[in-house]
């Protein structure tokens, strides 16, 4: 599904070039549940955002199925991302001024879904994640666990093939973290490919493959 070859990403500080990723090669098959691990500053989140096609300032080759993402224009990359990828963030990043229902609708509005279809998808997603009774509430009225659940629901609503999660349980206590990870497993079983970045060994245990990164290089894999 995803093929990375010789991916490099550097940040420039004046004349100095600081490499965050250097020569990363990685293959991920459709339906996998992969965890990326490594110490702080290893380049995990940077890799995740390259996979999510948010970052355009990298070099190397990136194939998304049979599409050469590295050759696409930014506009086409955005289209590819919108069609296939959903994001879950550590700090949930729900929009405070929107209700639960409206937050779920945001990704759909950026993907040109019609009003009827949007309403139907929101309704289905609220049912699926058992959030219907919370739909008119604002995020600030909800617990961290519930907020992240909405974050996952929002990532899923446009039916992506791939979910990228950056420390999805970093702000949650263990019971809430467990619920979210079980949700990921369930989604994975239903066919969604999941890649998460985490420091937690316990959360990594939910995945079937762990990619270790150190100083910008893939240093090993556990299965």
């Amino acid at each position: 599904m995803l093929t990375l070859r010789k991916i490099e990403r550097a940040f420039e500080f004046g004349r100095e070039k600081n490499y965050v990723l250097r020569g990363v090669n990685l293959d991920i098959e459709e339906g996998e549940f992969v965890t990326i691990m490594g110490p702080s500053g290893a380049g995990k989140s940077t890799l995740l955002h390259i996979l999510g096609l948010h970052d355009n300032a990298w070099v190397g080759e990136y194939y998304f199925f049979d599409q050469a993402a590295h050759k696409l224009k930014p506009k086409d990359r955005a289209e590819l991302r919108n069609k296939n990828i959903g994001f879950v963030f550590q700090s949930y990043h729900l929009l405070d001024q929107l209700t639960v229902q409206e937050n779920l609708e945001v990704p759909l509005s950026y993907r040109n879904y019609g009003r009827a279809e949007r309403e139907q998808l929101v309704r289905e997603t609220l049912d699926r994640f058992q959030l219907t009774d919370k739909k008119h509430l604002y995020p600030s009225k909800l617990s961290g666990g519930l907020q992240q659940l909405i974050g996952v629901a929002r990532a899923m609503i446009a039916r992506p093939k791939l979910i990228l999660a950056d420390e999805p349980t970093g702000n949650l206590h263990s019971a809430q973290a467990k619920e979210i990870m079980e949700m990921f497993c369930k989604l994975n079983e239903q066919g969604t490919t999941i890649i998460q970045v985490t420091h937690s060994e316990i959360n990594a245990g939910y995945s079937r493959r762990i990619v270790n990164i150190h100083d910008g290089n893939v240093v090993g894999e556990d299965h």
């Binding site: 999510g52 948010h54 506009k75 955005a78 991302r81 919108n82 994001f87 963030f89 990043h93 929009l95 945001v106 990704p107 950026y110 993907r111 929002r154 446009a158």
Partner: peptide, 13 residues
């Protein structure tokens, strides 16, 4: 800025 970042991450162009 952060909200705009989120929206861009969620697919806004």
């Amino acid at each position: 800025t952060q909200e705009i970042g989120i929206r861009l991450a969620l697919g806004a162009n």
